[in-house]
């Protein structure tokens, strides 16, 4: 982490900075407040676990963190950029360059090989074909799927599919990896393998990892655990 503090201003902008972030769905009497004035700072290089019962606002928070959604009120700065002032396409560019997503349901493209799935983000970055192949192979290598490049999701086990999804998320060398219950569909042994992988990526590649989980065992891999309750961060 010391290497990241080398900027001349001394105190670098945190990777993520929530100030009184509020998200309200609906309007009038039907309005539901999903997030209610959340403050949160996450520094580059952290491994943070997010926990909380369903309906606590953690999914909403993850959507805003992932620049898929914007707050109704408050400010969200990602690398110092005020995300709430960006339009849809600007947020897409931000995701394209700095974010990697791992979803609970893997969300791979069916009938498309592992290699092509991993290449997908690079296509939207207009990376030349040869480099795309090389980097996708490298990413699959990193998650331990050497030799499985030509297999489609249907031919892979759940653990392998999640590894493909992780490879797809890290192939762009993002500064933030968002994982939404990455072990939700896996057995214990597979879950620990995936957590080892994420911890390793955080440690060795310096990728900041933000992970939603229901399982305390998995949260133990993180440096820090944030608990959500009723749209706020509670100090558990």
């Amino acid at each position: 982490m010391a290497a990241d503090d080398a900027t001349s201003t001394g105190e670098p902008a945190p990777l993520i900075e929530f100030r009184a972030v509020t998200k309200i769905y609906g309007a009038g009497l039907a309005a539901v407040s999903a997030l209610d004035g959340v403050d949160l700072v996450i520094q580059q290089g952290e491994f943070v676990a997010v926990m909380g019962p369903s309906g606590s606002g953690k999914s909403t928070a993850m959507n805003i963190l992932g620049c898929l959604d914007t707050p109704s009120a408050g400010s969200y700065r990602f690398r110092g950029i005020p995300v709430e002032s960006l339009d849809r396409n600007q947020r897409a560019r931000l995701r394209r360059h700095y974010l990697g997503f791992v979803f609970q349901g893997f969300n791979l493209l069916n009938r498309t090989t592992a290699l092509e799935n991993v290449e997908l983000p690079l296509i939207y970055r207009h990376t030349p074909r040869a480099e795309r192949h090389a980097r996708a192979r490298q990413a699959l290598d990193l998650v331990g799927l050497t030799g499985w490049e030509r297999h489609t999701p249907g031919e892979l086990s759940g653990g392998q599919q999640q590894r493909v999804a992780i490879a797809r998320a890290i192939v762009t060398q993002p500064s933030l990896l968002l994982a939404d219950e990455p072990t939700g569909n896996l057995d214990t042994a597979r879950s620990h393998e995936i957590m080892e992988l994420l911890a390793g990526l955080n440690r060795e590649q310096g990728i900041t990892v933000l992970m939603v989980t229901h399982e305390p065992d998995m949260a133990e891999y993180a440096h820090r655990v944030i608990h959500f309750r009723d749209g706020r961060i509670s100090d558990a």
């Binding site: 897409a92 560019r93 931000l94 394209r96 791979l108 997908l120 939207y124």
Partner: peptide, 14 residues
């Protein structure tokens, strides 16, 4: 869902 994946990983509307 495919479209969702593409948009999430940074595909522009265009």
């Amino acid at each position: 869902r495919e479209i969702g994946i593409r948009l999430a990983i940074g595909a522009l509307e265009r």
